[in-house]
Nucleic acid binder design. Sequence first.
DNA 1: GTGGTCTAGACCACG
DNA 2: GTGGTCTAGACCACT
Lengths: 124, 124, 124, 124
Amino acid sequence: MEIIIANNSKIPLFEQIKEQIKDAIYAGTLKDGDALPSLRQLAKDLHVSVITTKRAYEDLEREGFVVTTVGKGTFVGAVEPHILREWQLREIENGMEELVRDVKKIGLSRSECMDLFDLYWEEE
Amino acid sequence: MEIIIANNSKIPLFEQIKEQIKDAIYAGTLKDGDALPSLRQLAKDLHVSVITTKRAYEDLEREGFVVTTVGKGTFVGAVEPHILREWQLREIENGMEELVRDVKKIGLSRSECMDLFDLYWEEE
Amino acid sequence: MEIIIANNSKIPLFEQIKEQIKDAIYAGTLKDGDALPSLRQLAKDLHVSVITTKRAYEDLEREGFVVTTVGKGTFVGAVEPHILREWQLREIENGMEELVRDVKKIGLSRSECMDLFDLYWEEE
Amino acid sequence: MEIIIANNSKIPLFEQIKEQIKDAIYAGTLKDGDALPSLRQLAKDLHVSVITTKRAYEDLEREGFVVTTVGKGTFVGAVEPHILREWQLREIENGMEELVRDVKKIGLSRSECMDLFDLYWEEE
DNA sequence: GTGGTCTAGACCACG
DNA sequence: GTGGTCTAGACCACT
């Protein structure tokens, strides 16, 4: 489990941590029951305050991604696969809706959009 | 020229103002040479501090959308059409790039994406 | 708006603050649109760290009781009265359910319970 | 004597153990002189550290529910029936007092309360 | 002035 | 060892 943070980014540190842990869960790198690094260990690794890592874990717990037990640690929680899928799709849909709105605002055609899409799709 | 601001949004007030003026320029509602409402008038209309409207106009001027002349007011500046287009496209491209990245992260196929896109495209 | 905290209680400070603000909203002392004391003012009044008051306000916002705007302050949010009522009732129901369970566990009769209830009901 | 612990509960493990042993004594499942499982056996059964079971037994001994004799084990202690009753009632009274306080806070009437009470009373 | 984020310590309860 | 709470500062962006 590798987490990389950019101290100069505009995104809050704890958000970056959350984001990467979520991604790892999405990707299957972190699976149900896996232990996350301890608050203090992660804080030391990232050269970050304990309160920052705690904030990230706390948010993840509230969103149902992890469960934490005092004295034991923080573990990836059992997220029902179809619920997880639902969340992922909703995020994409929101992004898509916004994009379409912006695209229409500047008057791009559907096919121009498709081309642009394919451009980025092939890229990587 | 109607500007609506949401006081409870998480987006800063001055950003909301900027955004809507830009949109009006994109859409052609505001054209080269048109006068923007005076700082104080706009501030009064939106129940907002003059500092806030000033901040919005200043940013817009720095980005080349408007020009302010002391004693006369603020006017939509001559934005070269192809420059304007360039900006618009860059914004779309950024959005598209991010979307594609997210889509790949959760393993959606290209055609599923297209379907989703069409869904929102037809919608409105 | 008077908030009293007991530093020696087992209940976390931020919980005590949350609780009392919620109570004030329930009771109508704080109404939709009212401003809450600023983070720093409240912190000074209660001789508490800013981060503690912030934590309380943050939780209240997440639960929908208040809305906070950077640079302006924190305000009581528009909680639909019937939604509010719903929450209140659910809390009572949970308490009642637990009580009944405990009462049955030790074999108290229904009428003994009623008597006990009336005892506390009249008391105040 | 069956003890079930939930590893993901927010209630400390040793509290869960205490609670269930007390309940068994209240219910008569465990009677004066009965032997409790040994520290190590219980720890193994629950997949819990011995420190945790020790903590639970120690607390129970301090509260007078059990007596531990080194080399022999832990046994349910002779709790005077009327003392036991006293404890049980005090717990119920505390719960009742809190409930009445909450109920009054949200302005429920006495009869509404009674109805709610009966609802849960009949339920099981 | 306001809230948003962050630090580098600290003490406590739990295992 | 773990997480939970709290402090007393700090800097930043927004109004």
